[in-house]
Design a protein around this nucleic acid. Structure first.
Lengths: 119, 119
DNA sequence: CTGCATCCGATGCGATACTG
DNA sequence: CAGTATCGCATCGGATGCAG
């Protein structure tokens, strides 16, 4: 973990989900196994650098598993670990509130490759 | 909102909850109205600068309401707005997962409910 | 008590170019 | 296809000092 002492459980969660894109990556992986390129398509606004950095960090924290498959070039897939799947309620809550907030604010949300529907 | 386009509802939520301390502040306010000093006591690791910045931002985003009471010096209290209270499921999920994660990792979480702990 | 002002380092993030 | 390497800006956030 990053800090010595925690005074609220929320601080623990925030440490793991830190960064602008970490929760978004996990929300997509919650839907199933995804290739690197699939994640890129679903997150057009994130740079390759940041996407890779976050995936490495999530791997280090034990939330995501990286698998290199046979093939040329070698396909790489990412999936949630058991620990990562335990975040499902958090990710669903983030998703639901974002949906409602966007509706209240009249802000459009345009998923790529069809809806990214949780659950 | 910060960005023009959203490709996933989670991005909307993350924009509002951005920052290391924002979710923690909201989680404390979810428990009830709090004075500035009470928030300081419950969040010993955050600086006054950041706490004030976040509270102002949350006020701007319509999640928190700031009230100056009579008295010298004037007491100031903070409470969630209706929009802020709509975050309750998100905050509860963050809290619950943090609690479980800390237990799995053997990391202690020590809430400050009593007197001030000086830094 | 509740803050604001200032400084400043650390980190996050985006853009671009390049590679096995 | 799935990354690395590099650069530079922006933002975050901690420390300190001061004020009404």
């Amino acid at each position: 973990m990053r800090r010595r002492r925690y005074y609220c459980p929320v601080e623990v969660t925030v440490d793991v989900l830190a960064g602008r894109w970490t929760p978004v990556i996990l929300a997509h992986l919650k839907e199933g196994v995804h290739r690197y390129g699939e994640l890129r398509r679903r997150m057009p606004a994130v740079s390759e650098k940041v996407l890779t950095e976050r995936l490495r960090g999530l791997e280090r924290d034990g939330l995501v598993e990286r698998t290199v498959h046979d093939g040329v070039p070698a396909p790489v897939s990412y999936r949630l670990t058991e620990e990562g799947r335990s975040l499902a309620p958090v990710l669903a809550a983030l998703y639901d509130w974002g949906t409602a907030r966007a509706a209240r604010m009249g802000v459009p949300v345009e998923p790529v490759d069809g809806p990214v529907t949780p659950r």
